[in-house]
Design a binder for these strands. Structure first.
Lengths: 325, 325
DNA sequence: CTGAAAGCGCTAACAG
DNA sequence: CTGTTAGCGCTTTCAG
């Protein structure tokens, strides 16, 4: 059994209260006393017991990041990026970070964590469960209409707008979109943004110029082939994400079309694959790290009792022009 | 303040012990009593307090995954894969998972977690600190000579061997390697394996046929260009990982060399980029998920007091032949 | 500046 | 099968 505050108290000849103060509020203890305590602690290899502290304080100093998605691997590049950001922000505080998935977060006990960041398509059931246990909640890459939870999202409309405006600037008017079935929230936003921005620009969306595909590589490739082999194919394709854009590139290669001369291709997310491809893929960068950082900061602020001034934080994307457009 | 076991005890008219039993060992309580307790708990919106439980049991039922790396982003595809595996295995147990980095794991208090999985190049200092606090330790993607810590690693030698044998089967004899400066443990293993397997096969390593590069895309591209523009370049290049292989592919494209006819290229890791490239990249799959799963299982077993039969678990890789060789 | 003591919510040994 | 009770290790009020 490890030594406790009592052992240190005994060895150093001071009370347990003083030992406690030495560790949690050093300034309130005279230096001489403090030194005695620290020396005893060193000898005994004493380290404060985090559980007992939590018990007394009734807070865990832990938050959880719960990933709510069903498709693909859990920590894909997008969520890993968010997680990186959350880690960075959490680690700078006194909090520690638990990571799990919606599916596995079953053993919900009170006081496991002080708050949660829900990433992606969190079910209402999960949200209500968290509220029932008095946890503070922040959503990331999702928002729930009508409930007004604090959330951090990317400006999906702006992402699509940046893409379309770039294609227009390159002289394209027959622009198509390959939408995909991945995160419901994101997909819907990007899809709707495409329709509204095209309308705003006065560009018609021709029949067959919007298709929906599963987000994996082979499905996107097939769908892109179908789009490009129409009688009147688009001259530029906006893919709903880089994975789909990659499939579109493969389709172009298979059909012997030159990118960007015969067909311009543009992704969203700006993932690592963009620079691996040839030609390198133009994409709209979504600042996933920043989304993570901001959501963690928001939750931490909430836990300090501060209400954030803006409950809905929108992270602005940035167009990265490369060689595919 | 949330309700406690006492409130439930009072409302249901049984002792606190019975309430406790109802939640942690239901079978030891008569059904009728149990129902009364559950009903009271429901009414009061009671949920057991995890901290108090930990306090009593003197264990947190939490483990930590500490990522020890300096280059690149924290949760890159490789470590995200390991983390996925750890999450899966952890979530199937009663444990929960903390994720942090070596750099940030400073506020080391006793009883924050019951054990740790150290991923990558853990410093001896960190390991000793963990031991001092009586934590159980498992290393993943690393091992420490002479200390005999439980560890899970990939069979790096076999990965290289599979690659070389494949290239030999394709008729290559002038095989080069692009080694890289990423994880010291892995790099060294792959590099040494290359030399020993080549020797074993009786193939000479020609001057300039082994080069070391930074692992980023542009450095690998430059280095690969240098290797391919020698007087007598290799006919096949084994890259130390897929990122470097990607750079090698770019070098081939830049030099107008056809892959695999003019130059065969082979990666290690089998990351997502392999199928994005054209031609698709042959690579040796490292089962990172499995590494995560096994390391978590090992740690969990250790925490149950079981000593694992094998302290050093080696995960066998698998060659995935695609179009680049 | 330091000490005594109460108590955070739960579990488990023991008694009935 | 159920109740009583003694802590787990720490923080914090209140006194000194």
């Amino acid at each position: 059994m490890a030594h406790t505050i009592k052992d240190v108290s005994r060895l150093s000849g001071v009370s347990t209260a003083t030992v406690s103060r030495t560790f949690s509020n050093p300034d309130s203890v005279k230096k001489a006393t403090r030194d005695k305590v620290m020396e005893a602690a060193r000898i005994l290899n004493y380290e404060p017991n985090a559980i007992a502290r939590s018990m007394k304080l009734q807070q865990t100093e832990k938050i959880a990041f719960l990933i709510c998605k069903e498709y693909g691997s859990i920590l894909d590049e997008f969520y890993a990026g968010i997680c990186d950001g959350i880690m960075a922000a959490t680690n700078r505080s006194d909090y520690q970070l638990l990571v799990s998935t919606e599916r596995d977060w079953t053993s919900m006990k009170r006081n496991q964590v002080d708050g949660v960041i829900l990433g992606g398509h969190a079910s209402l059931k999960l949200i209500q469960e968290c509220r029932r246990l008095d946890m503070r909640i922040v959503l990331v890459n999702n928002e729930v209409g009508g409930f007004d939870f604090p959330c951090v999202v990317a400006d999906e409309e702006m992402a699509v707008r940046l893409g379309i405006e770039h294609l227009i600037a390159r002289g394209h008017t027959r622009i198509g979109m390959l939408a995909g079935r991945f995160s419901p929230y994101v997909c819907e936003r990007r899809y709707n943004a495409f329709k509204s921005v095209m309308a705003e620009k006065g560009l018609p969306i021709l029949p067959g110029h919007v298709m929906i595909t599963d987000p994996d590589l082979s499905a996107s490739t097939e769908t892109a082939v179908a789009m490009m082999t129409q009688a009147e194919p688009p001259t530029a394709i906006l893919a709903a994400n880089d994975e789909i854009a990659t499939g579109t590139m493969k389709a172009a290669i298979r059909l012997g079309k030159r990118v960007p001369d015969d067909i311009a291709i543009l992704g969203i997310d700006d993932s690592r694959v963009c620079t691996a491809l040839e030609p390198e893929l133009t994409s709209v960068h979504i600042f996933r790290d920043q989304m993570g950082v901001e959501s963690a900061k928001m939750l931490l602020a909430l836990l300090q009792g501060k209400e954030p001034e803006e409950k809905r934080m929108v992270i602005r994307p940035e167009l990265i022009v490369r060689k595919s457009t």
